[in-house]
């Protein structure tokens, strides 16, 4: 018996938690519980990110996803949390159809996961030799458009393809602006006068 390789154990732990709570989200009928499970699942996912050496992204995951997106969702839950919406029963036939389709999908995806040779595990010695490097600086530079890992790339064709993310970084801010204006517009309480066509339709 070989010595236990701790990162793998942690992987099992985190992936187990995130998968288990993902199933929890899926199977639970209670919206409040679902939100809670989702928080735990996403948080465990950030653990997976840390394990893969993506510490900054892991932190972002915790902050934006778990902190931000979920607060938003929970906010929504609270806004609509009347007794009758807490639990909604899904018709059994839908479950079965969903599980059949989902099972097929899962099967295809899992077999895909195992079918690329490059995706198999490294040797233990090889894996232990990998040195953790700081990711924040390269990430920050990458967002500014400078890929500091670019000179290290031996393959010239690949080096050309290493793009900086300045464009996305800038354009996404405009996108967020537009999206927030849109969301604010919809969420604004004031009801608008309807278009003429609406009157015929509004009677329904």
């Amino acid at each position: 018996m070989q010595e236990i390789y701790w990162p793998s154990v942690f992987f099992l732990l985190f992936s187990g938690i995130s998968c288990a709570f993902a199933v929890g989200v899926l199977l639970s009928q209670n919206i409040v519980r679902m939100a809670f499970y989702l928080v735990l699942s996403l948080a465990a996912t950030s653990g997976l990110f840390f394990l893969a050496g993506a510490d900054f992204v892991g932190a972002m995951q915790l902050m934006i996803y778990v902190g931000g997106t979920l607060v938003l969702l929970i906010f929504g839950v609270m806004l609509t949390s009347q007794e009758r919406f807490i639990e909604m029963h899904t018709w059994a036939g839908d479950w079965v159809k969903a599980f059949l389709a989902g099972g097929a999908l899962l099967f295809i995806l899992v077999s895909a996961a195992f079918s690329v040779p490059a995706w198999q595990s490294m040797d233990r010695a090889e894996a232990e030799a990998v040195v953790a490097s700081k990711t924040v600086t390269p990430l920050g530079m990458g967002l500014l458009g400078v890929r500091v890992d670019k000179p290290e790339e031996p393959d010239a064709a690949r080096r050309d393809g290493m793009a900086g993310y300045l464009f996305q970084f800038e354009i996404v801010s405009v996108h967020l602006l537009v999206v927030l204006i849109g969301a604010a517009y919809l969420a604004r309480a004031k009801r608008k006068r309807d278009l003429p066509a609406v009157q015929s339709d509004g009677s329904q």
Binding site: W91, A92, G93, D94, W95, V96, K97
Partner: peptide
């Protein structure tokens, strides 16, 4: 999976077989 599905439907009764019969 088959075992699990049978368990869900007939042991844990999470899914109502009559509803299934109706849907399908």
């Amino acid at each position: 999976m088959g075992l699990l599905l049978a368990t869900i439907i007939y042991l844990w009764k999470k899914l109502n077989p009559d509803e299934l019969k109706q849907s399908f």
